[in-house]
């Protein structure tokens, strides 16, 4: 029995060690590195982290817990990164107002500075994706043709071919992208908010993300064909054919069939 126990211990030891080492690295990294992970946003100082912590305590801790460790109702924010905060708070999704199938974008509740501070605080809790630089999200640096290929493979099934949005199950939906800022689009891909999957560097490189942003930006140009009818595809075209086309033609028919006065 003793021998058996010893062997068992033997086998487990490296694993435990590895875990400990990982934890230690993580902890060290968390202490040393987080602010530098964010090169674009105004450099987060210790003050920012502290102010961010206070904003967090006042506005977010009810759901996310006093130390953002998560509660029954809301996920832990350790390791979600500054990008997630900038997206969720910057689009007004957080703080969440009422529960429903999904959290909706609304008026932003904080100033840009406060959002930066909040992001700095959350980033200080554990390593996670940083807010992208202005250069990274500049549509001019992307190739819209490659963007089309990537967008239709990875995004169009939910967000529609040109980003007009679409339905998911049980009342959830993929929002329209035409009003969304390139920065938020980038952050959404990076962090995978709510139903959306995560697209990390391996799935879509930063250049590819930029290509996608370039493609979405290109959709803001006028459509060569005229009014876009919501870019919703054949159903809206059918509605317009009936309302405008058949409507006008019946109006003309009535005029032709009516007796002249």
């Amino acid at each position: 029995m003793k021998a058996l126990a010893a062997r068992r211990q033997d086998r487990r030891a490296p694993l435990v060690l590895l875990l400990l080492a990982l934890l230690l690295t993580g902890a060290v990294y968390a202490v040393v590195a987080p602010p530098s992970a964010d090169a674009s946003a105004p450099a987060a100082t210790g003050d920012d982290v502290e102010t961010g912590r206070q904003i967090f305590q006042a506005n977010c801790s009810t759901c996310h817990g006093p130390n953002a460790e998560g509660t029954e109702w809301a996920p832990s924010l350790v390791g979600v990164g500054a990008a997630a905060v900038d997206f969720q708070v910057g689009t007004g999704r957080m703080p969440m107002q009422n529960s429903g199938p999904q959290v909706l974008a609304k008026d932003v509740q904080f100033t840009d500075e406060q959002i930066t501070q909040l992001a700095a605080y959350v980033a200080s809790l554990g390593a996670g994706p940083a807010i992208p630089t202005e250069e990274q999200v500049d549509p001019a640096g992307g190739d819209p043709a490659n963007g089309l290929s990537l967008f239709r493979t990875n995004c169009a099934m939910c967000h529609n071919a040109v980003g007009a949005g679409g339905a998911l199950s049980e009342g959830k939906f993929a929002p329209a992208l035409l009003e969304t800022s390139p920065e938020h689009i980038y952050e959404a891909m990076l962090t995978g908010p709510q139903s959306m999957p995560v697209f990390n560097e391996a799935t879509l490189t930063s250049q590819e993300k930029q290509d996608i942003i370039a493609y979405i930006e290109a959709q803001k140009e006028p459509s060569p064909g005229g009014l876009e009818l919501g870019s919703l595809g054949p159903v809206s075209e059918g509605v317009w054919a009936w309302v405008v086309g058949i409507g006008l033609l019946i109006a003309f028919s009535v005029w032709i069939g009516a007796k002249s006065s």
Partner: peptide
Amino acid sequence: ATDPDARPIKASDVTIGSVVH
């Protein structure tokens, strides 16, 4: 490999919650 670029995928690169075509 990823669609459409045919880049092979390392298991370690696939984070939880991500989806690759």
